[in-house]
Structure formats: structure tokens, C-alpha cells
Design a protein around this nucleic acid. Sequence first.
DNA 1: GCGATAGCGCAACCATTGGTTGCGAAAAGT
DNA 2: ACTTTTCGCAACCAATGGTTGCGCTATCGC
Lengths: 126, 126
Amino acid sequence: MTTAIDDDLWSAVGDPTRRRLLDRLLSDGAGTATSLSEHLPVTRQAVAKHLDVLDRAGLVHATTVGRERRYRVDDAQLARAVAQLASVGAAWDARLRRIRTIAEAVHRSRQAHPHAANEEEGSDHG
Amino acid sequence: MTTAIDDDLWSAVGDPTRRRLLDRLLSDGAGTATSLSEHLPVTRQAVAKHLDVLDRAGLVHATTVGRERRYRVDDAQLARAVAQLASVGAAWDARLRRIRTIAEAVHRSRQAHPHAANEEEGSDHG
DNA sequence: GCGATAGCGCAACCATTGGTTGCGAAAAGT
DNA sequence: ACTTTTCGCAACCAATGGTTGCGCTATCGC
């Protein structure tokens, strides 16, 4: 089920640019706003804002090295994030399966008793 | 890997209200903008806009029944969506695993040969 | 058939946010 | 000491999630 606590996570990871930043950080190990922006179609400032969002979400954190501000992915946090996303997907998947099963049952039942052609909503609701 | 074709999907499903709409539609089977808005903290018009987005993304479609416009989830499309999300998660997960493996290897290697060249973690700053 | 009502679509408007440009400050390199 | 690199801050713009308000149309009750 989709809960409110997921929202932060989704909004952090739901943005395409942020996903690409995570991809980059994962493949490169670390990066600064400047270095990351060179591989993306956005400005350094935009990247900096996204990194700030990701930082507040706990998915990355920064260490200041000289005049650079180097960001790195927090493995554990991202792993948790992935798990959360997967769980939402799994919930939907489960519901879809259940609905499909019911739909098939209804279909068979219709073939058996072809008279209640009702257009009402079939609320299964577990 | 995060690709551009995923973006539509993520933007459709990335919004918390739209996820809740999908939840509702899945559990109730169908619903109108009005009925759905009664269970959500947003107005009917906002819901209508979201339903339009979901419709254009192919995740739901509507049938006009009398003066109602009744929306229903497209099972197949949502199933595909879930699969896409899962694949992104899986990609990250794979990377995290690989990184962790390498990190552990490095860790062991450091214990064996303790002459590390560190230029990081100097977050002292001024 | 006709009025009251339920439901919806359209439009104007506001706040947030992802994005830009421009500028100034500070650390590193020369 | 001067230049370069890199960053942070601020102003500004466009898209979007949200609201209110209005008017249309289909259904229900008489």
C-alpha cells in the first residue's frame, strides 16, 4: 500500500535528473556538482539543488575536500529506498494478480450463468 | 539503467496523489473524479487532472456511464509499469551489490597492506 | 415536459519546484 | 600577488499540482 512515509522517497527518486545523478554517482563512486553537471544536460546550479534534495533525503552525503564538495551515495539508504519502491510495486502486483484471478472467475461464471450483465463495480477489497 | 523512456512512467506514477488514486481504483475497481476526491484531501478538479494524466499515460481509461465518467485501471499497462519500476530498482540493487563487494575487497586489502593514499574524508574545512 | 440537482469540464489564479543566468567569495595553483 | 577553479546565493522563468468559481448537461422527481 502507498503510505505517506514513502512520499519523501518517491519525490527524491521520482525526478529523472536525480535518478541520473544517482546513476552517475553509483558508477563513478563520487562526484561534485560541477563534475556531474558536465555529463548532464543541466547546469551546475541545478545539479547542486538536486544534490541538496538527495542529501536531505539521506540518499547521498557530501564531504568537503579542499574547495570541492564531493558527494557520494549512501549505500544502505539507497538499498532501503530500492526496497521500499519494490514493496509498492509488489503491492500493486499482488492486487493486479488478485483482480485478474477474480476477473477470470467472473468470466467463467458468466459463461455458466449468462444473465446478470451488471455494470456495477466489483469491489473485492481485502 | 535509467533511460529517457522511463520518464513518462515515473512522472505518471511518481506523484503521491496519483499513486493513491491508483490504490483506490485498484481496491474499488472503478471510480469517478468526484467519488475518488471524497477519499482524498484534494478537490474533484485536482483529481480530474490526475486522472487525465494517468489516462494519457495509458494506466487507466474512462467509460461514460450516464452523467458519470467512470475510470478503471488498465491491468496490463500497470503491470508493465510495475515491471519497469522493478527493473530500475534491480539495476541499482545490482550496482550496490557490486560496489559492496569491491568495498569489502578493498577493506581486506587495506588490512593486509596498510599504506593507504587518502585524499578524502578531510572534511575539516575552515 | 419541466424544474431541481448531481456531476463534470473549462478557466483563472496561486504556490512550489526544476531550471536558468549572473554575480561575488574563497581556496588552489602559478 | 594574480589568476583560475569551484562554490554559494539571489533573481528570475516555466511547468505543474492545487484551489476557487462558473456554466453546461444529463438524470431524477414531479
